[in-house]
């Protein structure tokens, strides 16, 4: 059932995100061709400036729409009117939450890939073969440089992915509490999210006040840094903290979505 639910999420996101992705790809090609064949474009040409503004606008739209859809797939589809359908399905609440989280993560990663790929596309089309060869060489050199630190690099990638998941689950927790109100549910959700941030800041301040603990954290975070031996302590500690937050926010979101469900 999880696979079916993820498929449903993919379909719901794709009808909005795929046209934006296609538009970004098309503009990347136009900008690339402009750079390659119309050199006078770059010198303050209005059309080029407009194309560039539109391109940047679309990149911003990817980020904004991924965020809005991520929230709405929980707030609207699960806790709003469509929740009457979702909660009629023979599926556990935790499975629905997992499908939403995976869906949001996939489209966040896809957005980042499309953004990166569009810049690569502009470079490939826009620069001449000599420039292109130089870029490839520089990239190869970079890969050779970081090869000894592959494990460390992968660890940071995992930290980033888990941080995205933590953000998604934190939003779900805020929205599920905010939906306990009968009116102004969205404002309630935003206030709860701000409340979470304040609680996190208070906890961080308390930890800093406990000197032995603060000193230990500082030692871990500033251990042998990038250079001869990478400092695995920092990403591992951050990862553990993120995992703790994910568990806490997941339990909160599950409790208010499953045990205290208050559909619109």
């Amino acid at each position: 059932m999880l696979g079916k639910l993820i498929g449903y999420e993919m379909k719901a996101y794709s009808r909005i995100m795929v046209p934006i992705f296609i538009a970004v790809a098309a503009l990347s090609v136009i900008i690339g061709l402009g750079l390659r064949f119309i050199p006078e474009w770059v010198g303050g040409n209005v059309l080029f400036a407009l194309t560039l503004i539109l391109y940047i606008g679309l990149l911003v739209a990817i980020a904004v729409m991924t965020t809005i859809l991520g929230i709405n797939r929980y707030y609207g589809n699960l806790l709003g009117r469509e929740g009457y359908f979702m909660f009629s399905l023979p599926v556990k609440t935790s499975t629905m939450m997992l499908a939403k989280t995976i869906g949001a993560l996939i489209w966040t990663v896809l957005g980042a890939i499309v953004g990166g790929a569009s810049i690569a596309l502009i470079s490939v089309i826009g620069f001449n073969t000599k420039d292109y060869a130089e870029i490839i060489n520089a990239f190869k050199m970079l890969l050779t440089e970081i090869k000894p630190y592959t494990g460390y690099f992968i660890l940071w990638v995992i930290v980033i992915i888990m941080a995205v998941i933590q953000l998604i689950v934190q939003v779900y927790a805020a929205v599920s509490i905010g939906s306990q109100w009968s009116g102004h549910r969205l404002i309630g959700s935003i206030l709860v999210y701000i409340g979470f941030e304040i609680i996190e800041a208070i906890i961080a301040t308390i930890i800093r006040a406990i000197h032995p603990l603060a000193n230990w954290i500082e030692r871990v975070m500033t251990g042998t840094s990038w250079g001869t031996t990478p400092n695995y302590g920092a990403p591992i500690l951050i990862l553990v903290l993120i995992l703790v937050e994910i568990v806490i926010f997941w339990v909160i979101a599950w409790y208010f979505t499953d045990r205290k469900l208050n559909l619109e």
Binding site: A12, R15, N77, R81, Y84
Partner: peptide, 11 residues
């Protein structure tokens, strides 16, 4: 189950 409102994904 048929709820007392529109409940299907309208898109």
């Amino acid at each position: 189950y048929l709820p007392d409102r529109d409940f299907l994904p309208d898109w």
